[in-house]
Design a protein around this nucleic acid. Structure first.
Length: 581
RNA sequence: GCACCCAUAGCUCAGCUGGAUAGAGUGUCGCCCUCCGAAGGCGAAGGUCGUAGGUUCGAAUCCUACUGGGUGCGCCA
């Protein structure tokens, strides 16, 4: 149920009636007609711009249309009043019974209340994290992981068929570096003195991997050249790293559907097939690129290379797909990977990258556009930096200084729920401040606490009502008489609940899960406001002494709030708090 | 030099993909707890939405040009 959609249908029906009566001309396009909540609640519950959008095509004055429409709408029992305002807005006030109906609808549907079938039939692939398998995930990955996971859940909630995917960069030179580093740890485990030079990973996390290798291999690789051990060490090490990464992700509550290996593209003809597809479209050629203007590298010299004509699909320059030594550039397997995604039949692709990969957006979009011949849209969401603070003081991450902060550090310190919520309290393309102390503070300025507290309050009042012998299970509340919910503070909460389905669709359409977090904060705010009014106005308390029926109607509202909070937190991957400690 | 992202209250940020007098938190100021739901509550002040044009009934939102900040820019992934 989406109240805004319902009322919009009503407006469209009324307009159709006006057409059939000859008040409005035939053949008007009604696409631009919207029904939305006005910014200023004093303007009513909903407003439609119908009169203004139709004025020009209908060759009528906006106010004339608005008045005719108002008269029609007033016939509907749901409409308490319809007033023409401003340049031709039609402000609608809905009967209290409509808002009470929203509460009933929430309780009937449960956490499915805001589900949408907007994405019905649409298969979406969300690729996120995709960190190199060379070490543990750090805070930057954490944001991408949370964002991607919440986005995937949001799209699922909006009716899409979602696949969560991780691309393992296990095919490039960095995994050779990993293998050599692990080899050093292997020697170390066998008692040798080793030195970690530039171009190796000195992290402690490789020590157990080296030990495991020593356990498995004994001294068979000691003193042997790379040809003997490199390949096996590589696969042993990447497996170990992926195990580590999977464990980290699990600690955060992230579970992928597919782990896609870059390595699986090599030596199997899959890269060649993707490039061949582009070649058949006339998009592969040999050529020489212009040096970048303004900042010419000292060692620049013109060189002929194999290029992808990405400019034919919106990129700024064509991109090399082959190195001068004949090997593929990193871009080639990326193309092949997206070719694979396209051929798996997805209707839309989403990539979540760190902001430092912003330079690859255009070329990836160009590749997907070319490979799918424009059929499959690729949206790339960039997550900005996370700035870390401790007690208001910023601190820099440095591997050397040992202040490198991993995903695991964050989760272990503040827990997965807080981590996830906080990561979504900012738009993905805005930098995020993460203060280890403030995120645990119990105050209004901390949205995590504020939302959880609202949910816990509902749970608490339900428990107390049950102790007082008032039936307040969901089935009972769903059938409760809600006629008594007519106070302004109560209706405000119901109005907020009515916005939920609409918000889900907007958030899903824009691929912006942070909207859910902000909505929950607002809903919690309205609920806390109502709760606080109970201090002065005893008639607004949820438990009405000696009046089970009144208590039940009020607790139906409270329960509806907790259901929507629960649904929203579910999308964010956060567990609703049953009580605060 | 080019591309992408960002610029909204003193501070941190929302703004529902073009709607009315631009919102919230925090900070500032003024009220409110001997008691019943204060890990607080009510109210006030605070803005040329970076600048200048344009599109139209209507712009923080779309377009153009600037200013300032971030990111990236052939054979590293």
């Amino acid at each position: 149920m989406n109240l805004f959609a319902d009322i919009r249908s009503l407006v469209l029906d009324s307009l159709a009636t006006l057409v059939s009566e000859g008040t409005l001309p035939d053949g008007l396009s009604l696409d631009a007609v919207t029904v939305e909540p006005p910014r200023d609640p004093a303007h009513g519950d909903m407003a439609t711009n119908a009169a203004m959008v139709l004025a020009k095509p209908a060759k009528m004055k906006p106010r004339d249309i608005a008045e005719a429409l108002a008269a029609k709408l007033a016939d509907d029992t749901r409409i308490a009043s319809a007033e023409v305002a401003g340049p031709g807005f039609l402000n609608l006030r809905l009967a209290p019974s409509v808002w009470q109906g929203v509460v009933g609808a929430v309780l009937q549907a449960g956490t499915a209340y805001g589900r949408s079938d907007m994405g019905r039939g649409s298969r979406v692939n969300v690729e996120y994290v995709s960190a190199n398998p060379t070490g543990p995930l750090h805070v930057g990955h954490t944001r991408g992981a949370v964002f991607g996971d919440a986005l995937a859940s949001l799209l699922d909630y909006a009716g899409h068929d979602v696949t969560r995917e991780y691309y393992i960069n296990d095919g490039g030179a960095q995994v050779d570096v990993l293998a050599r580093s692990v080899y050093l740890r292997y020697l170390e485990a066998l008692g040798q003195e080793v030195a970690f030079e530039d171009g190796t990973y000195p992290g402690d996390y490789l020590i157990p991997v080296g030990e495991a290798l020593a356990e498995a291999k004994g001294d068979a690789w000691v003193g042997q050249p790379e040809e003997v051990w490199l390949e096996e060490a590589r696969s042993f090490a990447t497996d170990a790293m992926m195990e580590l990464i999977r464990t980290d992700l699990a600690a955060l509550g992230v579970k992928m559907d597919v782990f896609f290996s870059e390595k699986s593209l090599y030596g199997t003809g899959r890269i060649e097939a993707a490039i061949e597809d582009l070649r058949a479209k006339g998009l592969i050629y040999r050529g020489v690129l212009e040096p970048p203007k303004g900042k010419t590298p000292e060692d620049w010299e013109p060189r002929e290379q194999t290029l992808f004509r990405s400019t034919a699909h919106g990129d700024d320059v064509d991109r090399p797909i082959m190195k001068s030594d004949g090997g593929w550039t990193y871009f080639a397997p990326d193309i092949a990977y997206h070719y694979d995604k396209v051929s798996r039949g997805f209707d839309a692709l989403i990539d979540v990258f760190g902001a430092d990969h912003g330079g690859y957006v255009k070329r990836m979009k160009a590749a997907v556009s070319a490979l799918s011949e424009g059929r499959v849209p690729l949206d790339i969401k960039l997550t900005q930096l996370v700035r870390l603070f401790k007690n208001g003081e910023p601190f820099k991450m440095s591997k050397r200084a040992g202040t490198f902060v991993t995903l695991r550090d964050v989760v272990d310190q503040v827990g997965p729920d807080v981590t996830r919520f906080v990561m979504l309290t900012r738009k993905n393309d805005a930098p995020l401040d993460f203060d280890f102390d403030k995120v645990l503070e119990q105050s209004r300025e901390n949205p995590v606490f504020y939302v959880q507290y609202a949910h816990a309050r509902v749970m608490s009042v339900l428990r107390r009502a049950a102790e007082a012998g008032i039936a307040c299970d969901d089935a009972t509340l769903a059938e409760a008489d809600l006629g008594g919910l007519d106070h302004e503070a109560e209706l405000a909460v119901a109005r907020k609940l009515a916005e939920w389905p609409r918000l889900v669709e907007t958030a899903a359409r824009t691929n912006e899960p942070h909207r859910v977090a902000f909505y929950l904060y607002e809903l919690a705010g309205d609920f806390h406001a109502l709760w606080n009014r109970g201090n002065d106005v005893h008639g607004l308390r949820f438990i009405q002494e000696g009046d089970a029926a009144a208590s039940q109607s009020k607790m139906a509202l409270a329960r509806a709030v907790s259901v929507v909070i629960s649904a929203g937190l579910g999308i964010l991957g956060v567990t609703p708090a049953q009580e605060m400690r």
